[in-house]
Design a protein around this nucleic acid. Structure first.
Lengths: 224, 224
DNA sequence: ACTCCAACATGACAAAAATCATATTTTAAT
DNA sequence: ATTAAAATATGATTTTTGTCATGTTGGAGT
């Protein structure tokens, strides 16, 4: 039973409002898991009785569209919480969470979260602000999907991946996504995604070597 | 200064958690407005220092995309609250609200809402649940935008308008949207929208007479 | 009733994106 | 190391969607 005080999730999430004694209770009731790459943390429609803390790794939040395509709604990385919306709504989760990396996560049972929620105003306000931020992002994302071309969405997504997950020593994007997953983020066919990557490669916006993608001309990419 | 007790907004929104004395305070601090068709309640980027109660009428929540197109993110109708997200996040509003009808709205100053928020747990939970519901809807909507064709989105939108806003005695859709606005909802060019309406008309899914749209074969429309 | 303007409609064409077919490369398993 | 399977890549083609041009209709206001 490791402590929660020094945990990265405590540092960056709504949990930072928790006080010493609450952190002790938290350490006591939480359970830790390892999720292997490709495995789900939870699946669309499931009833999740608590929230997950992402201690390490990245996962994709996806939804299966009726035509069988998997849309990636967003990516969640270490330091963030998962499953808050569903817990508050008291509804099944509407998205699946699948590991893109090996992950370290903790699970906090709903009962305990609700206690924090009711006794610690700072915590509940943090959760609310997070969800409000998610809502704003979702609305903005929606407009992007509805109004921009696939090419623009790919360019924006590459910049987002660069800025959010950083680069390796060789300057290639750190995050590891298949072409199919990248297509799932921008909402297009895998072939279209590959074709546009080729095009960006030829026009010197990016560089491809194997599955590695390196942004070589971010400025031009922003103007696409 | 009219009472809030019998107001439709109190009946259907988060406000239903308010107690007698809180309703009296509310009646005391609110201000009522009439918004004419086409006028904004607030505009993207504005700082709104409170929330709006929609007593009557319908408004569109829009966002201007960089290419100059207006995306309609959602429609809000009587009984609902507006501006909660922005108030909680303490950020400017990210969407504009523009009246599609003549509207009756009330404004509640932030200070008062925050008092309810802090003293009445039922109210704050209701607000949270509303925002969580909005978030779920936004994510689902996003997937629709990313994965479905314009034709499918138009069909779904027509059914949504039918189910949500109802029909007149002649069975035509009650809500009054221009073709441009309808196109803005589904995220397409106005001409494409008009063309598809024509097509639906010719295949007997809908009937057009002037600007009136009547759904004549909802079953087929659902299968598009 | 008439006029004018905006909204609606349609055709022709161009561009974007999806689909289907088929290589080629990478990766994982034996 | 070899092979099979999966992922990536590219070509050819079709479908979808956007754009531009132009015509038509319906109302608001005189």
């Amino acid at each position: 039973m490791s402590k929660c005080e020094q945990c990265i999730v405590r540092e960056f999430s709504s949990l930072k409002a928790l006080k010493k004694d609450e952190l002790l209770r938290l350490a006591d009731c939480k359970s830790s898991y390892t999720i292997k790459k490709g495995e789900p943390i939870f699946t669309e429609g499931e009833n999740v009785q608590g929230i997950f803390c992402i201690k390490d790794g990245v996962c994709k939040m996806t939804k299966l569209s009726p035509n069988g395509n998997e849309q990636i709604v967003k990516l969640i990385t270490k330091g963030e919480l998962l499953g808050q919306r569903s817990m508050i709504s008291e509804e099944p989760v509407n998205l699946s969470a699948v590991a893109l990396d090996d992950m370290q996560v903790c699970f906090i049972p709903k009962a305990e979260v609700m206690k924090f929620f009711n006794e610690n105003n700072g915590f509940s306000m943090n959760v609310m602000r997070t969800i409000c931020g998610d809502l704003k992002e979702a609305d903005d994302h929606l407009v992007t999907m509805a109004q921009k071309s696939v090419k623009q969405r790919l360019a924006e997504t590459l910049i987002y991946l660069h800025d959010t997950f950083g680069i390796n020593e060789d300057k290639s994007l750190k995050i590891k996504l298949s072409r199919e997953e990248l297509a799932g983020m921008i909402g297009t066919a895998t072939e279209s995604c590959i074709r546009l990557l080729s095009e960006f490669n030829k026009s010197g916006l990016i560089e491809l070597s194997g599955k590695k993608i390196t942004l070589t001309n971010t400025e031009k990419l922003k103007k696409v």
